[in-house]
Amino acid sequence: MSNQHSILKTGDWIKGKLLSGELVIGYIENLDIQSQTLKAKVVTSDNKTIEGKSLPLLNRQVTKIPSTPVKNKEQIQFLIDLALATGDQEWFLELTAKLNSMRELAEGIK
């Protein structure tokens, strides 16, 4: 199940275009390898009525969004808000631990 040199897996962030033309950004909730389909939770879209919904998509309709390293406090705070909005407790705890480590490091330098 290759998609632009990336293997899709549950939890991956994706961007795609629905057959009706709407752009979507979300994350994979379920994959069906045999039928080449997935179910994605839509976090944002140019069609606001589908935000927050889970939609079935074909693998060929989506592209995996590459992960980028978080470099500053503002990025982590934004991701914490996103983790809260998506209800991802594990990610929230991971991000808050990273933010606390950054704060401790900054206090140690003073």
Rank of each mutant, 00 (worst) to 15 (best):
N3C: 08
S6E: 12
I7V: 10
I7F: 08
I7G: 03
I7E: 13
L8W: 00
K9F: 02
W13D: 10
W13V: 10
I14W: 10
K15N: 04
K15H: 01
K15E: 11
G16H: 13
K17V: 13
K17M: 11
L18H: 11
L19E: 15
G21S: 11
G21Y: 14
L23V: 09
I25C: 07
G26K: 02
N30S: 15
L31W: 04
D32M: 12
D32G: 10
I33Q: 09
I33N: 10
I33E: 09
I33M: 06
S35Y: 03
S35L: 03
T37R: 10
T37C: 07
T37L: 03
K39A: 08
K41D: 04
V42Y: 14
T44L: 08
S45H: 14
S45F: 13
S45Q: 09
D46E: 12
N47L: 05
T49F: 12
I50P: 00
E51R: 07
E51M: 02
G52F: 08
G52Y: 04
K53M: 13
S54K: 09
S54Q: 09
L55Y: 05
L58M: 02
L58C: 06
N59H: 08
Q61N: 05
V62W: 04
V62M: 05
K64P: 05
I65L: 12
I65Y: 05
I65P: 04
P66Q: 02
P66K: 05
S67D: 15
S67E: 15
V70L: 15
K71E: 15
E74D: 12
I76T: 08
F78L: 12
L79C: 06
L79P: 01
I80V: 09
I80F: 04
D81K: 10
L82W: 05
L84F: 02
L84Q: 10
L84T: 01
A85H: 13
G87H: 00
D88W: 01
E90N: 11
W91K: 12
W91A: 05
E94M: 10
L95M: 03
L95V: 01
T96P: 00
A97V: 06
K98S: 06
K98V: 04
L99E: 06
N100E: 04
S101N: 14
S101T: 04
M102F: 07
M102N: 09
M102W: 14
M102Q: 14
R103D: 08
R103P: 01
R103N: 06
E104H: 09
E104Y: 03
E104C: 03
E104M: 12
L105N: 02
L105S: 08
L105V: 06
L105H: 05
A106C: 01
E107Q: 08
G108P: 05
G108H: 09
G108L: 01
G108K: 10
G108A: 05
I109F: 09
K110Y: 12
